[in-house]
């Protein structure tokens, strides 16, 4: 029998999950459960929407209202769910490819619209489900099956992208820093507006192997040794920040939320 947290939030009859040994998506999924548990949300009102890819299998395992959609489109489906029923606590679980390549347009427009959706990106810098192709977050010079000579493209910083597009809460955590990650997820989930948490995840099977990153544990320890909190960034030089992953809060503002505004419009016509 699994832990209380797992029993109360996951569909235990669907476990063990399909993720590879050492893939840290499972750590991220547990962190989401923990945040929902800590916040005491009514689970009948939680709706998890996902797209396609390793990350997006999450929806099948979480014991809430769950919707596994098409590649890149989770945020667009979630927008329909949220506007149609604003009482639902709508969250999107997506991957780096799903949300910043094929679904990039939906990401920036949901952020611009500031619709109350919490988007959680399992960012493992690779297309895992299809076998290790480079993604929009694969660092330059890193290898993927479609980057056999090293990635020649500059990657996206999903946090800066979401913040610039208008998201009202943006943060990055890692699957090494689990407790701080849970806190960031909680803050994203209670934000009334478009919130995004970029969760650095690990893919030992493809990204790790292609780039000689070592064991699953070693990949997690990389996060321990190579991350800098947003609060410290200003104090450091460009050289000191080179190749470092910035974690913590990127943005936390309050603005009028889209569905609230729409409900106001409807209210004006009631009579």
């Amino acid at each position: 029998m699994p832990s209380q947290l797992v029993r109360d939030n996951l569909r235990t009859n669907k476990l063990p999950h399909i993720w590879c040994a050492g893939c840290s998506n499972g750590i991220a999924m547990r962190a989401i459960s923990q945040a929902i548990e800590n916040l005491g949300f009514d689970k009948k009102k939680v709706c998890i929407v996902s797209g396609i890819g390793c990350s997006s299998r999450t929806s099948g395992y979480m014991n809430y209202n769950t919707l596994h959609t098409t590649h890149g489109r989770a945020i667009a489906f979630a927008t329909g769910v949220k506007l149609a029923n604003p009482n639902l606590k709508v969250m999107v679980v997506t991957g780096d490819g799903d949300c910043s390549a094929i679904g990039g347009n939906h990401l920036i427009h949901a952020a611009r619209r500031n619709i109350d959706i919490t988007t959680i990106v399992f960012n493992n810098n690779i297309y895992g489900m299809t076998g290790g192709q480079f993604s929009p977050t694969t660092p330059m010079e890193n290898y993927g099956t479609t980057a056999p000579y090293g990635n020649m493209e500059k990657p996206f910083d999903i946090c800066n992208l979401a913040a610039a597009a208008g998201a009202t809460y943006v943060a990055r955590g890692t699957t090494y820093h689990v407790n701080p990650l849970v806190k960031l997820l909680e803050k994203a989930m209670i934000k009334k507006g478009f919130a995004l948490v970029d969760v650095m995840s690990t893919c030992p099977t493809y990204y790790g192997r292609k780039n000689k990153k070592g064991t699953p544990a070693k990949m997690l320890k990389y996060f321990k040794d190579n991350t800098i909190d947003t609060k410290r960034v200003e104090k450091l030089s460009k050289e000191q920040l080179e190749n470092k992953i910035i974690i913590g809060e990127f943005k936390n503002t309050d603005e009028l939320e889209f569905t609230d505004k729409y409900l106001e419009l409807i209210k004006g016509w009631e009579g």
């Binding site: 667009a76 329909g80 149609a84 639902l88 939906h106 920036i108 427009h109």
Partner: peptide, 22 residues
């Protein structure tokens, strides 16, 4: 509710999502 989505794909996606809420 009416929403103008960012593209055609999102238009049908939101429509399906809304239908799922009844």
């Amino acid at each position: 509710k009416f929403i103008q989505m960012e593209d055609e794909i999102a238009g049908i996606a939101a429509t399906i999502g809304a239908s799922l809420t009844g």
